[in-house]
Amino acid sequence: MIIKCPHCGPREASEYTYIGDASIQRPDHNDTDMEKWSDYVFMRENPRGAHMEHWQHTSGCRSFVKVLRDTVTHEISDVTLEGPWQAEDKS
């Protein structure tokens, strides 16, 4: 599997660390609702098909990318940069 890092170009998935489902939202830091936190930590949609997920280019530039990947064919249709540097991502 090859993921196109917006900084480094196409690199093998083995250079990245899989972080997981990107559709889940971390509750607000000051939220104390235990159930919300449990949902965030444990519950996953785990779709068969299109999956939005986070990967980190740990053996490269260490940036985080949001990847749209099909969990059946493994085809990647979109990769975008995450975080405050997002705006610079012109790829």
Binding site: T17, H29, T58, R62, F64, E82, G83, P84
Partner: peptide, 17 residues
């Protein structure tokens, strides 16, 4: 060492930009 760094990077990038 590595997991702690990754967790901090994750929080800073994805959750607390």
């Amino acid at each position: 060492a590595a997991p702690v760094l990754s967790q901090m990077e994750r929080l800073l990038t994805l959750n607390w930009p």
